[in-house]
Design a protein around this nucleic acid. Structure first.
Length: 156
DNA sequence: GCCAACGTTGGC
DNA sequence: GCCAACGTTGGC
């Protein structure tokens, strides 16, 4: 069982949207490293931090779970989609995705500023300046540290 | 809205 | 295969 973090822009798709839908195909990822994580490394049952980026208070908002094996992202073959990729062939798809199940929303959002201050997160690409990776691995220690932080300062 | 950092593209 | 130009990400 591995842990991951997946970024989303809450203006487009937030943890609340995931809660409403229950399950969501994580489409539109167009970065090779992030794609490799979904296509090759993620396993059914892996748990995922859902991270809100490019918003007023970026941070970890909730938890999801990998719902199934990876499969080709259908939006790459859809000319009407903003994720359309004319260079990708159905017999050799370039972009892959996994479905993510909603697990729960954290009792409070753990802001990036707080993550940066956590010793456990020091080695995470997430807190490194200029990091643009939208899917990244999380260690067991990092996972536990964030959940421990969730219990602090409730309602503050 | 700004802009630094980064990944990708394409000319050579 | 180099690398400048370009487009995008994402914190601030």
């Amino acid at each position: 069982m591995a842990y991951w973090l997946m970024k989303t822009e809450p203006d487009g798709f937030s943890i609340d949207d995931l809660a409403e839908r229950g399950r969501e195909p994580w489409d539109g990822v167009r970065n090779y490293q992030a794609r490799n994580f979904m296509r090759d490394a993620m396993r059914v049952g892996d748990e995922v931090f859902i991270y809100h980026s490019a918003c007023k208070v970026p941070g970890i908002a909730g938890i999801g779970r990998v719902a199934g094996d990876s499969y080709p992202d259908p939006t790459q073959f859809d000319p009407d989609s903003k994720y359309h990729d004319a260079a990708s062939k159905p017999e050799e798809p370039r972009w892959w995705l996994v479905d993510i199940d909603y697990v729960r929303t954290l009792r409070r959002l753990i802001p990036l500023t707080e993550l940066k201050a956590m010793p456990a997160m020091e080695d995470s690409p997430l807190v490194r300046r200029g990091n643009r990776l939208s899917i990244l691995p999380v260690t067991g220690g990092q996972w536990r540290a964030v959940l421990a932080a969730e219990k602090n300062k409730v309602g503050s």
